[in-house]
Design a protein around this nucleic acid. Structure first.
Lengths: 148, 148
DNA sequence: CGGGATCCCTAGCGATACTG
DNA sequence: CAGTATCGCTAGGGATCCCG
């Protein structure tokens, strides 16, 4: 077995409501809500994972079987689909339903928790769509200025 | 992302390896929106990166110098801070300002683009905070049922 | 102080091949 | 069909030393 999501120890994340944009030189260290940071880092790992969100997005349209998902995502290897689904299942984002028929049938579906995750992820997706041009442009500019 | 090969020598920083844009015009891969998927995967990689968001969150409180950031994030290595900042700068999320004084001074700050990213990320952070108990519970249950 | 260059170890992931 | 198991590669990332 293995630990899929690397849990870290400290840092800062939510509750960043100190808009002292012009006043540095004070405490530089994070203010320690360790558990909060861990949770955020945790979900970020899930989301940032190469395949998790692809799976979630596909599952959004209803339950799917293993190879159905495999074909839908297309470029994913069978190994990674298995591992990704296990991770999502472990986190309670996806449910796994086995139907012991003659060819065994397994359906994967989003749990309510999984569905609720879709919303903030969608927001991030919207940001990506809205700003990808800016980002790509910045990249081009940066690369050019670096090499010239 | 295709032009990022000659810029660095030790391996270019983040980015999603190859978003499965294998060329065939049809093939009925995902559900249509290839470019959208690529953009989302892209930003997801940034966000899911171990350090990027930590840096962004710290920078939210105003410009900071290199070692100031280093101390703030604390567990980050100098190498990763450099690389993370480069990546964020390349994507236009962070600006780098050099002041050629006797001890050289370099300030990093969030660009407007970087600040705008904070919002959807915050939403994700909120989700994490709201559901971390559910996730941890699911994990415990899963692990127990798996090993018992 | 800021950051490039090296060394090296580990996790992530893809490609088979095999099983119920 | 739905996995599990094994191998091997490479990108991620920590530690260290060095330089302007």
């Amino acid at each position: 077995m293995e630990t899929m999501t690397a849990v870290m120890q400290e840092g800062t994340f939510p509750s960043v409501s100190s808009p002292s944009v012009t006043a540095p030189a004070d405490k530089a260290a994070d203010h320690g809500d360790h558990s909060a940071c861990r949770a955020v880092n945790d979900v970020l790992s899930r989301v940032g994972d190469k395949w998790s969100m692809r799976v979630v997005m596909n599952l959004d349209r209803g339950p799917m079987r293993f190879n159905e998902l495999r074909r839908a995502i297309d470029s994913i290897s069978q190994r990674m689909l298995t591992r990704t689904l296990r991770g999502l299942e472990r986190d309670g984002l996806v449910s796994r339903t086995v139907t012991p028929s003659v060819p065994p049938r397994v359906d994967y579906a989003l749990t309510p928790l999984g569905q609720s995750l879709r919303e903030p992820v969608q927001a991030l997706g919207d940001w990506a769509m809205a700003n990808r041009a800016a980002v790509e442009d910045a990249r081009t500019t940066f690369d050019a200025g670096c090499d010239e």
